[in-house]
Every structure is written in structure tokens, then in C-alpha cells.
């Protein structure tokens, strides 16, 4: 195993153990000489991707996914605050909780996508009409949508319709329980992709952006 793979594995183990000190040591000390973007690409992205796969397979719990994302997000902030490097502002990515009141899902996805080096605008919880206005105004390229209730998931169809009326071609990436338990729902509501883990959303964006 190469040094890069080893660090990614060590980081993953530390993240799953919710060991913040060990995570910090790997990213800030062991990789001190590595440029920030390389630390992201070589350690953070693969560690979070592996955790995402394990979540999908039922091998890790939501609390571990959330805390992993939170730890890496804090490390990213720390790295950025001590350097001149910034997150990429294009493509424009926004995250929203559509008409639900459970923000956990969308915060985790936002943190995971940010940890890959893309800035993500957090829209928080929004109703449909103001969301359409905001997506069009901000010229969003990727809209990450989280829902918990089926009724909110079904609202994505209306969202798509309204965005098309406004000639807005934001790519809609949906996630949450309704999409996880009904594998074809995302197609029926007109979304462009569904991700059963935060890192899957990230992989989709990276792939669309031609980085993989």
C-alpha cells in the first residue's frame, strides 16, 4: 500500500472512531508538507467516499457519517484559514432542505462536497417558490436537495417544472429516505441523479465536471 492510500485509510479509521485529535494529526502534521488540494484529493475525499460506501451497505451508522463530515469540514476551515487557497466557486453548488424541517441530511452532504474543495451555498430550509427564484438568481449548476417526507420528495417534480419554465437548467441531485426506499422515485420526479450517500453526490459532480 502506498503512503497516500495508507493515510486515507488511517484517516477513515480515525473518522469512524470519532477521534478528532488523530484526524487532525494526519491532516495537519503527517501531511503538513502536502498542498491543501492534494490533502483533500489524497486523504479526505477517499476516506469520505469509503465511509459513504459503508453507509450505503449498512456497515456504518448515520452518526458516524455526520461526525466524519463535521470533523473534515472543521479541518478544511483550519487549512484554508492558514493559507491563500480558496474553495472553487464554480461549478456553483447549493444545498437545500425542501419543505422539510430536518436539516441534518443536507448539512452532511454540504460538508462532504465542501471537503472535496467545492464551495457549497447553504440554502437551509426553503419552500418551493422562493427556492425557484433563488436558484435562478444564483445561476446554480448543481442543486443538492434533501427530503425526509414523501410529500416533500414529490415536490421535486414541481420544482423541476418551475425551473424549466424559467429556462434554468440546474442539475437536481436528490437524496433522503423517500429516494432511498423507492429506487425509481428520483426519475419519476424528474431529478437528474439520486445519491444514497453524501459521497455519491460528490462523485456524480466530479464525474460531470470531468475530473474523473
Amino acid at each position: 500500500m502506498g503512503k497516500k492510500e495508507q493515510l486515507a485509510e488511517e484517516l477513515e479509521a480515525a473518522l469512524l472512531a470519532i477521534d478528532q485529535d488523530a484526524c487532525r494529526h494526519i491532516i495537519m502534521d503527517d501531511m503538513a508538507d502536502v498542498p491543501i488540494l492534494s490533502r483533500i484529493e489524497n486523504a479526505i475525499v477517499p476516506a469520505l467516499a469509503s465511509i459513504g460506501v459503508k453507509w450505503r451497505n449498512g456497515d456504518v451508522a448515520l452518526s458516524q457519517v455526520y461526525l466524519s463530515a463535521k470533523i473534515t469540514d472543521a479541518l478544511l476551515e483550519e487549512m484554508l484559514s492558514s493559507s491563500h487557497e480558496t474553495l472553487a466557486s464554480r461549478p456553483k453548488v447549493a444545498a437545500v432542505c425542501l419543505e422539510d424541517h430536518h436539516l441534518l441530511g443536507i448539512h452532511v452532504v454540504r460538508m462532504v462536497v465542501r471537503s472535496s474543495g467545492y464551495d457549497v451555498v447553504d440554502y437551509g430550509r426553503m419552500d418551493l417558490e422562493p427556492l425557484v427564484e433563488r436558484v435562478c438568481r444564483d445561476e446554480v449548476d448543481y442543486l443538492l436537495i434533501s427530503t425526509l417526507m414523501l410529500r416533500s420528495a414529490l415536490r421535486v417534480e414541481k420544482l423541476k417544472e418551475k425551473l424549466e419554465e424559467r429556462k434554468c437548467d440546474a442539475c437536481l441531485i436528490v437524496g433522503g429516505a423517500p429516494f432511498r426506499y423507492d429506487a425509481s422515485l428520483w426519475r419519476r420526479v424528474g431529478a437528474d441523479f439520486t445519491s444514497s450517500s453524501p459521497s455519491e453526490a460528490l462523485e456524480f459532480i466530479l464525474s460531470r465536471e470531468g475530473k474523473r
Binding site: 461526525l67 436539516l103 441534518l104
Partner: peptide, 11 residues
């Protein structure tokens, strides 16, 4: 207290 705050408390 919200999902995130509760996870933080729990850990």
C-alpha cells in the same frame, strides 16, 4: 433539540 445538536450531545 434537532438531529445535529443531539448527535453532538451524544458524543
Amino acid at each position: 433539540m434537532g438531529f445535529e445538536n443531539y448527535f453532538d450531545l451524544l458524543y
